[in-house]
């Protein structure tokens, strides 16, 4: 994070979703492959990896950053803070899709209508 957010390292550490092995199996995806995560707000392609701090059955974890923020609920419920945690998502295989760099991801999303 402090070595440059435009750099690939940032994508490698935050453009991921951590899942339990059991959940990976259930979802029919392979670890260390790209997946498409979608919520009712948007979708994003990230790499699925095995939970480093698990197990946490039924819970996917995407670190704070632009990838996670593609998906979260922006409603603040009058607190000022968007609802960053607890967003229901679907995870599907997307082995052929690319994980975008932070800047490409944000710029592309901003250009879309």
């Amino acid at each position: 994070m402090e070595s440059g957010k435009e750099k690939e390292d940032y994508m490698k550490s935050c453009g991921i979703i951590e899942l339990d092995q059991a959940d990976i199996d259930k979802l029919g995806i392979l670890k260390n492959t790209n997946v498409c995560v979608s919520s009712k707000f948007n979708r994003v392609v990230v790499k699925a990896i095995l939970a480093t701090q698990g197990p946490h059955p039924g819970l996917g974890w995407i670190p704070m950053g632009p990838w996670a923020n593609m998906l979260v609920d922006n409603n603040t419920y009058s607190t000022g803070t968007p609802t960053f945690k607890g967003t229901p998502v679907t995870v599907e295989p997307a082995e052929d899709e690319k994980v975008l760099s932070s800047i490409d991801l944000v710029l592309k999303a901003c250009m879309e209508e």
Partner: peptide, 14 residues
């Protein structure tokens, strides 16, 4: 740009 939901980021962009 990294820490706001993308819908907010888009507004900043605009």
């Amino acid at each position: 740009g990294s820490h706001f939901p993308i819908a907010s980021v888009k507004k900043i962009h605009d």
